[in-house]
Computed example of a mutant assay.
Amino acid sequence: KECKQKISKAQKRHKELDGLVKKLYEDNISGKLSDDRFIKLSRDYEQEQEQLKAVVETLGREVKQQEQKKTNVRKFISVVKKYTDMTQLDATILREFVEQIRVSETYTTDEQQKRVKIREIEIVYNFIGAFDFEEAREQSQTAQDKNIAKVGAA
């Protein structure tokens, strides 16, 4: 929403600059504005328009990415709702949820205990990508702690 407002504001300013450049040109033709002043002002306005154009393009891409993420989350939620009463995980359900599973090479963290090997597994889900459950737990706990603190302060 904020990006869309910034885009709208930048587009409005771009249009205003078009009007200013037109007015500058008319003032220059009529002799109200010197050629040197016209060149300087029009160059400044054109540079600002180029910057605004770049901002609109960047924010436009960001809005599209955010909308795509929103769509992907909705799709993921619809798949989750479809299987709320699931009793067994089969290949069909797994394919619907998981895009890929990445398994690392085995390694040891302690040279003294070579028998203890670690292998990292990353699950990349359809629609939402890799999901860090540990980070989500921490964020959830932080949010709960803040809520408890608010209730305690009230």
Rank of each mutant, 00 (worst) to 15 (best):
E46N: 06
E120Q: 10
E57P: 00
E46Y: 00
D18Q: 05
H14K: 06
Y125R: 07
K4P: 03
E48V: 01
R61V: 07
N126R: 15
H14L: 09
E62V: 05
Q47F: 04
K12G: 11
Q112H: 12
V63D: 01
R102S: 14
R74N: 14
E26Y: 13
K40S: 14
Q65V: 08
K53L: 09
Y107I: 05
N126M: 08
E50C: 06
K23E: 14
D27A: 15
V116A: 07
V56H: 01
Y83S: 07
L41I: 03
Q100G: 10
L94T: 09
V98A: 03
S42P: 01
E105I: 11
T106Y: 03
Q100C: 12
E134L: 06
V56P: 00
A54V: 04
L17T: 02
T109R: 15
S42C: 04
E134Q: 12
Y25L: 11
N126P: 05
Q112G: 08
T71C: 03
K69I: 12
K70L: 10
Q100S: 15
K12R: 12
A136Y: 05
K81Y: 10
Q68R: 13
V56M: 00
K32F: 05
V21L: 04
K6D: 09
E46Q: 04
K12H: 12
K53C: 03
E57C: 02
Q47P: 01
E67W: 05
K117T: 07
T84M: 14
E99Q: 15
Q47W: 05
D132V: 07
K117R: 12
E105K: 15
F38T: 06
M86N: 09
T71H: 09
K70S: 10
Y25R: 11
T71K: 14
Q100P: 06
E67V: 02
E122Q: 11
D85T: 09
L33E: 02
R95Y: 03
Q65Y: 02
K32V: 07
A10L: 08
Q88Y: 14
F97D: 08
E46D: 12
Q47M: 12
Q100F: 11
V98P: 03
E122Y: 04
D27Q: 15
D132K: 07
K53F: 12
L94H: 08
Y83Q: 06
E96L: 04
R95K: 13
Q139M: 13
D90K: 04
R102G: 10
R37L: 11
V63R: 00
S140W: 02
Y83R: 04
S104K: 10
F76C: 04
D36Q: 08
G31F: 00
D132Q: 06
G129L: 07
M86R: 10
K6H: 11
T71I: 14
K9I: 14
I123K: 02
T58Y: 07
